[in-house]
Amino acid sequence: MASTAMPNPMVVKELMDRIDAVSVRMSAARPCEIALEVETMRRMARDNGIRPALTVLHAIDSALARGERGVLVRGWLDILRDAVGYGDDQDAETLFAAACSVRLNG
């Protein structure tokens, strides 16, 4: 049975603020700056048990490594916005993993 522990609302807000900040800076930021922010968000999600967000953050990291930029990364950030509201929810983690797989593989 999947756990449904909800994440701390303050952590969710901080993650959302970071997502918004990355989205705004996307056109001017260097890939390494985006990657650093992704790593910070990954640590926050890991430390707070937001497993669906971890799944999406790994996909964003892969997208950056493949050279995706701008609008393509903003699409990943939109998926991440949805994922941060879930806590340690295995069903949601599976759902977001499938969404990432579809987006990666077409």
Score class of each variant (00 low, 15 high):
Ala2Thr: 15
Ala2Arg: 12
Ser3Gly: 15
Ser3Gln: 10
Thr4Gly: 11
Ala5Lys: 09
Met6Ala: 11
Pro7Leu: 05
Asn8Tyr: 05
Met10Thr: 10
Met10Gly: 08
Val11Gly: 04
Val12Arg: 13
Val12Asp: 05
Glu14Cys: 06
Glu14His: 12
Glu14Gln: 14
Glu14Asp: 13
Glu14Arg: 14
Leu15Phe: 04
Leu15Lys: 05
Met16Val: 10
Met16Thr: 10
Met16Ala: 11
Met16Ile: 09
Asp17Tyr: 06
Asp17Trp: 06
Arg18Trp: 06
Arg18Asn: 15
Ile19Arg: 00
Ile19Val: 07
Asp20His: 14
Asp20Val: 14
Ala21His: 09
Ala21Tyr: 07
Val22Pro: 02
Val22Cys: 06
Ser23Met: 10
Val24Ile: 12
Arg25Glu: 15
Met26Arg: 04
Ala29Ile: 08
Pro31Gly: 00
Pro31Cys: 04
Cys32Ser: 15
Glu33Leu: 04
Glu33His: 04
Leu36Lys: 14
Glu37Phe: 00
Val38Ala: 00
Val38Pro: 01
Val38Asn: 03
Glu39Phe: 13
Thr40Gly: 03
Met41Pro: 05
Arg42Cys: 07
Arg43Trp: 09
Arg43Pro: 04
Arg43Leu: 10
Met44Glu: 08
Met44Ala: 14
Ala45Val: 08
Ala45Gln: 07
Ala45Gly: 07
Arg46Asp: 14
Asp47Met: 13
Asp47Ala: 08
Asp47Gln: 15
Gly49Val: 02
Gly49Lys: 06
Ile50Arg: 03
Pro52Val: 03
Leu54Phe: 03
Leu54His: 03
Val56Arg: 01
Leu57Met: 02
Leu57Thr: 03
His58Lys: 13
His58Ala: 13
Ala59Ser: 13
Ala59Tyr: 00
Ile60Gly: 00
Asp61Gln: 14
Ser62Thr: 13
Ser62Ala: 15
Ser62Asn: 11
Ser62His: 12
Ala63Asn: 00
Ala63His: 01
Ala65Trp: 01
Ala65Ser: 12
Ala65Glu: 12
Gly67Ala: 04
Gly67Arg: 03
Gly67Gln: 05
Glu68Ala: 08
Arg69Asn: 10
Arg69Pro: 06
Arg69Met: 11
Arg69Lys: 14
Gly70Arg: 05
Leu72Arg: 13
Arg74Gln: 12
Arg74Asn: 10
Gly75Pro: 04
Gly75Ala: 09
Gly75Lys: 09
Trp76Ile: 03
Asp78Phe: 05
Ile79Phe: 04
Ile79Gln: 08
Leu80Tyr: 02
Arg81Cys: 05
Arg81Ile: 03
Arg81Val: 02
Ala83Arg: 02
Val84Glu: 01
Gly85Trp: 09
Gly85Met: 09
Tyr86Cys: 01
Tyr86Ile: 05
Gly87Glu: 02
Asp88Tyr: 04
Asp89Phe: 00
Asp89Gly: 01
Gln90His: 13
Asp91Glu: 15
Asp91Val: 06
Glu93Gln: 14
Glu93Met: 07
Thr94Ile: 11
Thr94Lys: 14
Thr94Phe: 09
Thr94Met: 13
Thr94Gln: 14
Phe96Gln: 00
Phe96Arg: 00
Ala97Pro: 06
Ala97Asn: 10
Ala98His: 10
Ala99Leu: 11
Ala99Cys: 05
Val102Asn: 06
Val102Gln: 08
Val102Ile: 11
Arg103Thr: 08
Arg103Ile: 12
Arg103Ala: 13
Leu104Val: 11
Asn105Arg: 12
Gly106His: 09
Gly106Ala: 11
Gly106Val: 08
